[in-house]
Each structure stands twice: as C-alpha cells, then as structure tokens.
Simulated assay, not measured.
Amino acid sequence: MELRQLRYFVAIVDHGSLSRAARVLHIVQPALTQQIQQLEEELGASLLHRSAQGMQATDAGKIFYEHALAILKQIADAKSAVAQSTDKPTGTVALGIPQSASGALAFPLLTAVRAAYPDIVFQLTEELTGNLTEQLASGRLNLAILFDDGQLGKFHTKTLVEEQMMYITRANSQFACKRKSITLDKVLQSPLILPSIQHGVRPRIEQVVRAQGKQIENVIDITSIAILKSAILADMGATILPISPFFAEIQRGEMCATPISDVTLSRTVSLCASKNIPLTNAAMAVERLVLDVSRDLCESGRWLGAKSLAEMKPVKSCSPSN
C-alpha cells in the first residue's frame, strides 16, 4: 500500500468523481483507476461504487476513508513538525468542539488564533462528543474539547472550566419556575428536552439524578442544539444545560434560567490530546491559546455560569480582541 493510493482514494471520495479527482491530482484517469484497483485487491474489499450521485464509498470504503484521512493528517503533521520553528509555528491544527460549548468558545478562539498565529491553518470542527472522541483517538483531530465523564484516561487532558447547569425554559412558559431556584423533584415533573446520550452532558445529568434515587421518565431526546432550542421556544418542555448555548436567547428575554437548589449539577470541560500522537509546535501553540482564552472568557464574564480551572497564566498578547 502506497501513500499516493490513499491520497487518490480520498480525492475520489471528496470529489465524487474519477474524472474530477484525476484533474485535481494531475494524473490521467486510467492510471487513477489502476491504482484504486490495486488498493482494493490488496485490501480484499471493494471501496467504491458508482451511483446516480457519482462515485461513492462502499461501507468498507467509508471505514477505510476515515483511516486514510487520519494517516495522511499524521504524515502532514510530521512534516510540519520537522519544518516549523517554535518562534513562528505553521501548519494545520484541527480542533474539535462540542455543540453545547461552541457558542461560548468557538468564535473567541478562532479570533485569537488568527490574531496570534496567522500562519497556522486552523480547522475548527463542531461535532457530537462521541464523534470527537473517535476522531481524536484516530488522529484526525490534534485537539478536542471534551467533557470529563471519568472516561478521558486514554487522553492527555488539561482542565479548562467548570460550568453550572441550570433549569432552562421559554420565558413565560407553562413549565417556568416562579421562584429564584427550583428543586430536582420539581425539575423532573416537567417534560425534559435533553441532548442525546452521545453528548457528554447527558451521562452527567443521568448520573446525578440516579445518585438521588430518582430517574428521568418524561424526556425528549434531541441531538441538535439548534433543534433543542426550537423545541424549548415552542414550549414543548424544559432542559437542564449550562447557560452558554442559550446566552443570546436569555439576553433577549426569550428564555430564562433557574438554579437547581438541592443538587450540584455541573460539568467539567477539558482540553484533550492523544497520548500516542505527539503535538506539533503549531498544535501546542493553539493548546496554550485555548487555556488562555477560556480563562479570559470566565474572568470577563463572557462565559456565563463558568468558573475557570485552567492552570496556565494568561498571556495578554493571546487574548481575543473585544
């Protein structure tokens, strides 16, 4: 198996066409076809099939595609690590962030990276926590923001913040609490709209509820934070989440957040890296920025309901511009 075969295969899947991939790769189509046939013979599996939409990966091809991307990225990172200097890091850094944390951290971090390290190609991916864990382990991501559920031992981790989770409803909702705080029993009496189990926050909620000898009986599972917001605004129920994904709606008076008084419901947000794949200088520079930016957001009050747990001291030149 040759690296060029991996590049050829990825190009075909990305472009959905042998002819388009051949043009991008600057090779003739028969030669491209021959290389893919040799790759399939070596693997003993068909990787591509032709459909009305063009060339698409088979089930085996989809699995191989993920591995090919990870291998090609690690090779690119290795070349970048050898070539770059510590004073002016360059190269590509891929960071994954969960949907429920991106509202607070994504844009400030993107701004900070562009300002401090313009030569770094920064790839910011928003995904479900389960997908981020798989991509980080395989090497497709250099770094990932994950929620500490006690299962992060296979990664190098640096703690960022602790976020308080609250009872959130539509303003003037039939499920809204009229007091300054609400008990867990009252929360569980409402229909709850919660992220699905693939989100790192859901297992934490379930754990706390079970520890109180209770269970969530009336729940609507929604994977998308955007759809979850729509369901709350339609007054289909309430949710238990940190404030940050709903900051804009709360500011506009469309939603309200009430503390839960009799249990501690919070999540710990960590920055994670693989234990098996070393970070490039560029990735280490972004790692430092994530720590600095998260602290700055907490200290300035822009990350609502979050308390900084980062260990590194802030670097003024790395803070995002206001």
Rank of each mutant, 00 (worst) to 15 (best):
M166P: 06
I193T: 00
G139Q: 11
N172L: 04
S196P: 02
R179P: 06
C177K: 12
D185R: 15
K186H: 14
Q198I: 15
L146M: 06
L192D: 00
E163P: 01
D149W: 11
K180C: 02
V201Y: 00
S196A: 14
I182H: 00
K186Y: 07
R179L: 11
K154D: 08
Q189M: 12
R140F: 02
S181F: 09
L192I: 01
A144C: 05
K180Y: 10
A171E: 03
R140D: 05
L152M: 09
A176H: 03
K180E: 11
A176I: 01
H199Q: 06
C177A: 15
A171D: 02
I168F: 07
I193M: 06
K178P: 04
Q174C: 11
K180M: 12
F147P: 05
S196I: 14
I168E: 06
A176E: 04
A176D: 00
S181N: 10
F155T: 14
V187K: 12
D148W: 11
R140N: 07
V187M: 08
T159G: 02
A176T: 00
K158V: 14
Q189G: 12
I197P: 03
Q151C: 10
M165Y: 07
L152F: 08
R140Q: 07
K186T: 15
V187N: 08
A144R: 12
C177H: 01
K186E: 10
I182G: 02
I182F: 04
V201F: 02
L160E: 01
T169R: 03
E162P: 08
G153F: 08
R140G: 01
A144I: 06
N142P: 06
A171I: 02
T169D: 02
N172D: 06
A176N: 00
P191I: 02
L188N: 08
Q198G: 12
V201H: 04
Q198V: 14
Y167Q: 07
R179A: 15
Q189C: 05
K178H: 09
L141Y: 04
K186M: 11
E162T: 15
K158F: 09
K186A: 15
S173C: 08
P195V: 14
L192F: 06
S138D: 01
A144P: 03
A171C: 07
A171N: 09
I145P: 06
S181H: 10
